[in-house]
Amino acid sequence: MLEYEFMRTAFAASVFVALLAGPVGWFLVLRGQAFAGHALSHIAFAGAAGAVLAGFSPLLGLFGASVIAGGAMGAIEGRASAQRDVAIGLVLSLALGFGVLFLHLMTRSASLANALLFGNVLGVSPSMLVSLGVFAVGGVALLAVMSRPLLFASLQPELAEARGVKLRLLSMLFLMLVGAATAECAQITGVLLVFALMVGPGAVAHRLGLSPLAGLVGSAVFALVEAWGGLVLSWWTDAPVSFWIALLGAVAYVLSGVRIGRGFPASACLAAGRESWDKPERQQASTRGTDNDARNAVACGWSGSAGGYDGNAGSGAESSRRRGG
């Protein structure tokens, strides 16, 4: 399959996307902001549709809308979470509404809608690959630089504030990164399935009980395995890439919580040797708070993929080429 240019480009694009989306997803799960990530993907959709309508490239709309919206969300953070969720939910609906309106006003809306909603990784052009690479490398560099204060602020906001950490600035920068990661993921999975690639791998890293650094690296690796696995499986079976990524994400999430042996979680075995501290004494894994968001996220990505099967007709050209080869 690697003899085809579009497949090589797709594999390369997956590397960039996984590199940024995995670690960003790890922090999203840690901070319990999975819903904000979900909302950003819908805003990205509206942005892309609006950009095309105005005569720009959809990629510009994707990145522009989600990064700006991320920054705005970070700026209003600190409200009571119930109030915040309602506000985010309303903005999300409004964005989707505008997206639908923009599509309605266009003539070639069907194929564009499919590509935006369910992804079109086989249609990534070399110039798009460059944009993806620039955003991924820049994003990862920024995340690396802010990861220590962000971890501190996520775990102990009052303490971090007392030490002079700028909570609002961090929150804004982080949600802008989430916006960039959303736009990257949307290239592969489409906006509806961003969760599978962004939140899924981070949630797996959390469930395995990895320490922060290992979790950040691990979630990038899991995201890459999911994305490449999706490409390969799609090549073999001709089912859409997005479908396989969503399926792999859900399977990985379930497996990472499976108990092996005498009710001992698989994660405990894996994590047992992770620190040079003392030997960890672990109890059976119980249902944990951070898991809930992620679980909803995976379920959401999973149900979204059902529509992905026939929704991917937009990439029919590539599909038939593949069948021929």
Partner: peptide
């Protein structure tokens, strides 16, 4: 504290130079 999947070592570790930019 958030981070139910992290350990006490991770929690205390996050505090160290937590106000400076960089990797944890």
């Amino acid at each position: 504290p958030a981070g139910a999947s992290l350990t006490g070592y991770d929690l205390l570790g996050s505090d160290i130079r937590g106000d400076r930019w960089g990797l944890p």
